[in-house]
């Protein structure tokens, strides 16, 4: 099987500018998400995720303009997320040219949103992002509002419900692993991947190139998402793909 494992840089965008640091110092506008997206695309990133972390209404409009420019200038698929609460929000992003949308808290608050997106635009556009945390008894619970509010949803139950409602992919972020840079939550990713028939995107924990290899082999992930290791130049995507290929993993080079 030659289907490539995907490497996905995630860009946080606030008021139309990327917020995290970047290694691309030679860019005229390092903070411009479109320039950064193009750069990652040229480095053979497989997809891009743009997360709107703006709070204000004006900022939201700016983000829509960013999405329009990305659609015009970047030739690989991209996902947008952040602040998408209703079908109208999703429609606005897709009309601006996004290939997929990622929904998180809004889907837990009102799971029918997944059905609505799938029925109106197809499952392929609907990524359900799940933030979950493992508690001391070993159980994983889903969280809302960027990890601030615990719910009674167990990870596997919610992931299965999302799939049955028409999610096209699951983007799972382990709150235990996120930011620690010691690898992805491979045990749980593997369980998700074996229990569901839709692709699983691993998120949270990337620290070195071996972490990516492990999540594809041990975690059975279909794709891996990371932010800071790419933005701060700790890992370059061409180096990462070369390494993964040497480890026997199918990647697009």
């Amino acid at each position: 099987m030659s289907l490539a494992k995907r490497i996905i840089p995630c860009l946080d965008v606030k008021d139309g500018q990327t917020v995290k640091g970047t290694n691309f110092v030679n860019l005229r506008q390092a903070g411009d998400p479109v320039e950064l997206g193009k750069k990652y695309s040229e480095e053979n990133a497989d997809e891009l995720v743009f997360l709107d972390i703006t709070a204000s209404f004006e900022g939201r409009k700016t983000f829509t303009d960013v999405v329009r420019r990305v659609a015009a200038e970047v030739s690989i698929p991209f996902t947008v997320g952040g602040g998408l609460n209703e079908l109208n929000d999703v429609e606005r992003m897709l009309h601006a040219g996004a290939d997929k949308v990622s929904i998180n808290s809004a889907a837990i608050r009102r799971p029918e949103l997944i059905d609505e997106i799938a029925q109106n635009f197809g499952s392929q556009v609907c990524i359900v992002a799940i933030d979950a945390k493992q508690e001391e008894n070993g159980e994983w619970f889903c969280y809302l509002n960027g990890g601030r509010l615990r719910t009674e949803y167990k990870l596997l139950d919610w992931a299965k419900e999302a799939e049955s409602r028409g999610a096209g992919e699951i983007l799972f972020t382990s709150m235990n692993h996120d930011g620690v840079k010691k690898g992805f939550a491979n045990k749980q990713l593997s369980e998700l991947s074996s229990s569901l028939s839709i692709p699983i995107i691993a998120s949270g924990g990337a620290g070195c190139m071996q972490d990516f290899c492990d999540t594809f082999k041990k975690g059975k992930s279909d794709a891996a998402l990371a932010a800071s290791v790419f933005h701060y130049g700790e890992i370059s995507i061409p180096d990462l793909k070369k390494y993964l290929k040497e480890q026997g993993i199918s990647v697009r080079i």
Partner: peptide, 16 residues
């Protein structure tokens, strides 16, 4: 029709 679980449907992503 997927014969084994390693094949996800849809066929999605970069392939040759």
């Amino acid at each position: 029709h997927a014969p084994a679980h390693e094949f996800k449907i849809p066929h999605m992503g970069w392939d040759t």
